[in-house]
Write a protein that binds this DNA or RNA. Structure first.
Lengths: 358, 358
DNA sequence: TTGTATGCGTTATCAG
DNA sequence: CTGATAACGCATACAA
């Protein structure tokens, strides 16, 4: 599209090289049986003219664009920015280009993504919905390759990559218990929800407490619809205002935990001396907050790679009746100052440490 | 591309509606002179068949894709993630879709972006180089619409949107001086460079000190090639190790300043009691760090909007000989705890305050 | 107001 | 090994 001047096409190259247009195409596409002499003629012609294939024309003809969509809530949420980074790299390694779409976690826009015009520009979609749920399986039954990310829809008509929510949450809470904490609050719960990350991580939280012979105190459950820093700070303030006794906080993601940290700092409450904090996502920021934030590292790179691979497999063989796969990424607990205090591993900028894994 | 089944085309719609393909096209493109009855026939046929235009074909025919490229170093750098977010929104408002490309601030990849295949898929490019410089004006003289972001190339052959580097830096340092600071260090300087953000912000730094009747102490200048949290922390440690006396730090961007904050925290140095810190970019994280970080808000939204508008103007009129524009975004100083301490405006999650502007 | 025919730049199908 | 030629699906000049 871009070239304003000249728009040199295969015809021009063919003319200059004294061959047919098909031969130029053959050279371009690495066709085996070309006489070296011919090939060279064509290649110098290409170089002389500065010819580049017109991708739009190629795409039309081939019925493929080499583009895949990545639909996420928003890039200003660090986890999704880092995820996008990983997906772009993984896709690039396989010769694919990523088209990012922001849904703003608005239900309508999530539905739009599935049927919108952009789908005609992409060979497939990696979709991380935050609002759609089991009631939307019909809308998710699309006729193009798609890989779902996250835990809102299971058994849906698509390949699926999820985090190890229950086990990861369990390990996070166990990590807090190991530091001698007993009154462990949660920030980010979604009251009444039975699907999604919140519900699953809450389940891990309960199981860990039960395993430790502890009960679940509803007063320790802090709600937060959106998982942003702001909502995390608000939920933390509410918990503290309620007067409930607590010595640790499990932020259901890092943004919430960082918001909680912010609130604790504002109230001059020492972390982890008085209250320990752990988050989830292992975004880069957690290694630099004050104190540094312990967190669950959910295998972002693996998720990105797996998603791209699954998608590519569907793109390459659209008629395959291979059953839909579900991949659960490996996680790691990263212990930092917010739970370990000065015992935390070297505060050297990039160091983290795996305390448990599964 | 995506639809596997059926691939219903305009022909099918035309057949079903009992009209010609041209009429269908007319309806689709909002042609004025269509008999209402015909229009309706076509529209129901479209609905019945679930027809959607094939964008690739349309693009080939129209010679436009509706896609614009956005080339940035990497999305894991919060400023660029937030910039991408803003650009995507601005583009969407104008009916454009954004294709993000990561250069990793690697010189070769920055050059590749300019000539790569992807340029054939986009109508124009918004480019934020970190390595290219004045010596590369030739490479930047491309024959497609482009808008440059940043301050590495001036007077180049393209429209250009920059931050108010000198004045912003001057205001930042003045803000520190206003708090009574006199030994103001810098983190992120690029020794010997004469172009780019580092050089310009250093100029503002010097001018502010001069205006205050103070000299520039080279011992207070901390180098940092990459502007990441890690390098900011390292530079801060070096400054402290050097034993030089200082009561404030100007991080040339927020990542550096947050890294510095991290280093100061590790050494149990109180901010701002002992050392005040100010950054640049106003990324969301700065409103939640402990302490919250004062910063220069460089007008990200304005930059995004302006860049998209300038690009679109070039796309819409490629033959215009309108001279290349240079737009300088407005900035604001946001005073938070890292310079104002408890005097900082309400620590409510979203509040910031404009102390000066220009 | 609507239909016919042509071409956008490639790739694919055949012959040769 | 290479060359004509026909699509791919849409938009438009030109006719009607």
């Amino acid at each position: 599209m871009s070239r304003r001047t000249g728009a040199v096409t295969m015809h021009d190259v063919a003319a200059r090289a004294g061959v047919s247009i098909k031969t130029v195409s053959n050279v371009l596409n690495g066709y085996q049986y070309i006489r070296p002499a011919t090939k060279e003629k064509v290649e110098t012609a290409i170089a002389d003219l500065g010819y580049q294939v017109n991708l739009t024309a190629r795409n039309l003809r081939r019925g493929r664009t080499g583009l895949i969509g990545l639909a996420v809530p928003e890039l200003s949420l660090p986890y999704f920015a880092e995820l996008a980074d990983s997906v772009i790299r993984a896709a690039e390694a396989r010769g694919l280009t990523v088209l990012i779409e922001q849904t703003g976690s608005v239900r309508e826009r999530e539905l739009e993504v599935l049927t919108g015009q952009r789908r005609h520009l992409t060979d497939g979609l990696i979709f991380s919905p935050l609002e759609l749920g089991p009631q939307d399986v019909d809308a998710l039954d699309v006729d193009y390759p798609m890989v779902l990310l996250g835990e809102r829809i299971f058994g849906g008509p698509a390949d699926h990559v999820t985090m190890s929510n229950v086990d990861g949450a369990k390990a996070a809470v166990r990590h807090l218990l190991d530091q001698g904490r007993r009154r462990i609050a949660v920030v980010g719960a979604h009251e009444g929800e039975t699907v999604g990350s919140a519900a699953l991580r809450m389940q891990g939280y309960r199981e860990a407490l039960q395993d430790a012979g502890l009960g679940v105190d509803p007063a320790l459950i802090g709600e937060a619809g959106l998982w942003h820093r702001a909502t995390g700070a608000e939920a933390m303030h509410r918990l503290l205002d309620s007067g409930v006794e607590l010595d640790a906080v499990f932020g259901l993601n890092d943004a919430l935990a960082l918001g909680a940290l912010h609130a604790l700092h504002a109230r001059r409450i020492d972390v982890p001396e008085q209250i320990a904090v752990i988050g989830w996502d292992d975004i880069e920021e957690t290694a630099y907050s004050s104190p540094t934030l312990s967190t669950v590292s959910p295998g972002r790179e693996q998720i990105a790679r797996t998603a791209v691979d699954l998608l590519l497999a569907r793109i390459d063989d659209p008629d395959s009746d291979r059953p839909y796969e579900r991949v659960i990424a490996d996680f790691t607990i990263v212990g930092r100052e917010s739970t370990l205090g000065d015992a935390a591993p070297a505060t050297s900028p990039l160091s983290t440490s795996a305390v448990a894994s599964g």
